[in-house]
Design a protein around this nucleic acid. Sequence first.
DNA 1: GGCTTTTTATTCGAATGCGAAAAAATCCAA
DNA 2: TTGGATTTTTTCGCATTCGAATAAAAAGCC
Lengths: 377, 377
Amino acid sequence: MRKNPIFQRETLGAAVLQVRSGRATSRTTLAKALGISPSTVGLYVDQLIAERFLNESGLNQGPMGRPRRILTTRPDAGWFAGVEFNAQRIQAIGVDFSGAVLASVVQVLPAEVTADQVIKAILLSVSKLAASTRSPLLSVGLGVPGLVDAKAGVGLHYAFIPDWNDVPVVERIGSRLNVPVILQNNLRAIALAERWFGGGHELSNYVILGPRSGFGVAMVQDGKLIEGAHHAAGEMGRWPWPLADGKGSSQELHHALSAPATWRRLAGVGLRAKLPEDLREGLAELASKQGPEWDSVCEDFARVIGCLQLLADTGVFILHGPLTMLGTRFCESITQTALELMPALGAAGLRIVPSTLGDDAGALGAASLAMEAWMPA
Amino acid sequence: MRKNPIFQRETLGAAVLQVRSGRATSRTTLAKALGISPSTVGLYVDQLIAERFLNESGLNQGPMGRPRRILTTRPDAGWFAGVEFNAQRIQAIGVDFSGAVLASVVQVLPAEVTADQVIKAILLSVSKLAASTRSPLLSVGLGVPGLVDAKAGVGLHYAFIPDWNDVPVVERIGSRLNVPVILQNNLRAIALAERWFGGGHELSNYVILGPRSGFGVAMVQDGKLIEGAHHAAGEMGRWPWPLADGKGSSQELHHALSAPATWRRLAGVGLRAKLPEDLREGLAELASKQGPEWDSVCEDFARVIGCLQLLADTGVFILHGPLTMLGTRFCESITQTALELMPALGAAGLRIVPSTLGDDAGALGAASLAMEAWMPA
DNA sequence: GGCTTTTTATTCGAATGCGAAAAAATCCAA
DNA sequence: TTGGATTTTTTCGCATTCGAATAAAAAGCC
């Protein structure tokens, strides 16, 4: 019998990731994918099978030679929790190894919620999910609005929860659940979700556009999230911004391109106009709109994206949040306008697309944090 | 006698780096700095002493205990070459382990220079440097203008040398010199020089502003250069840019803030005005200038930097190129204007400073590439 | 069936690095 | 002078990983 040393969890996770993603199906292909020797892979696979993370499911005969012993992941090996919240609501989602959603819990938070109440609600949500699953919880990801120190695991600031300042979230949640807890800004978490659940499997450079009540972006360069020296990268809502339609003097970007501002501009109503009950529906009604309002909004987005592309050269922009309701036509209009305004963008190829993740994007992002911690790339 | 295995060059280099930088002076401190065990460090140090990269120079008695055997680098262990060029001139510089400049060679290139001539000039420059040094050449860094694929070692495009397209520089230089050759865009190389030779020893997030004939920036996030999906990150010269003084319609950023454009604006002359013979001197004369021209230039720079800071949150901006002749007062004016225009910037601390590297910045940047390859962080 | 060919998995010896313990080098106090 | 006390360095055994050789499992061919 082979000896059974304790391997690095990191490499074990990476191995599972390769199998999960279908990039490796046998010990030999796994060795190539991980860049380690076949002999070592054998040991790793032994352990992963012993720990019930992997299965051997029959043989696969190639054109010649000894057949491969096919490796598959076991969805029941464990699950990951992802929790996202804002000042109004909290959503927790459970996913298994294959990325399938096991369950989702949404809870409305009380008005003027406090940090303590949020922490309690997170714990409650996760335990609700746990009640419906028999397999063990492997890790928890938290998508938190506002400023986040991901490394320290501290929520630094969030304007809409007054006492959300320097909250040691990872410590408070982790000490209760006894599994790894990973914290990240919610928009940056969504950027990871795009890789784990969305269409961007192979992307390593892209930008998430997240216009909601403000205007933030999350940037991924070389597969890594850009956080900034003070955890504030992507907070471009305060860019000085002269409107495309020339009305009004220079203002800040989020006054022009936040989700509510975009609705107001497209709807052709003034700043005082009441927002529709459901902003998403309100925007969906405007998806087929034409005319100068549409053009001017598209031009503003095109200029923002053009600037980002020239500066960071990511090439791919994924639109998130309520504005996805404006559909692919919106993104196409922006792309076209951008290329007209800044022909230089055409050279490298500019892709602007709406996200396919839907309403669960935030929670899926949080779950991605959990998965990424367990299965590092 | 201890056995003498062949260690990873990477770790050997990292060890030398720690000693070089003064962060580690003995085997024990070196072990802590590198995060490896003291026993292993002993082996590494043995090898480095055998290879004449390190010296043991006496003992250092602490307040108690066995005295440390002090480790020092040997400047004569080898040297690094850095080469920078543009369409007009080529500069090669040789530095030793301590970062001291051994020699510098400047050569004027012929008008309408070709890629082949540049390659030859690079080889000639390095061999000129080599002639004056007895110690071995360890690696060569090349700071190349235009688009560069650093990973592949290929110069992709440079507008001012017509046939500079997809030039396999690393291959062509490396095959002659038989040492590692590292390629990078020249402005990005300068960003590294700021860490190796400038004041930014401990910086891991900063931006290099390099307004010359165009307007480019180099960004470092978490200690890593941002290159972009198509190696074009930082080429923000083509941002649409409405001038601060309101004259003229919207144009591109480099028309407003390149080094010549800045001189013209500060000098108060029109677009057709002839540039001074030496732009640096011309700018130096304007360093004490006051008035609306000065204010409007500062405001434009403040807006650019403000946008970058809000987006990438690096906190530190280092001005390079001819505009450094405008001195610290220029940077202070910009800082002040930026904080007035965008008070949000004040929170995290904004620092805008002129580079201290001087005219050799480009060549020193190239040398930094060589050093960083040999001594990875 | 017995042979070769091809591909995959395992075994085995060696290399590299770590942790714990031992040794070394100094100061200080008795 | 001798015996701690303290800190640095080295020794030694063990764990992990790799490379090369070997074994295994099939297909094709005679």
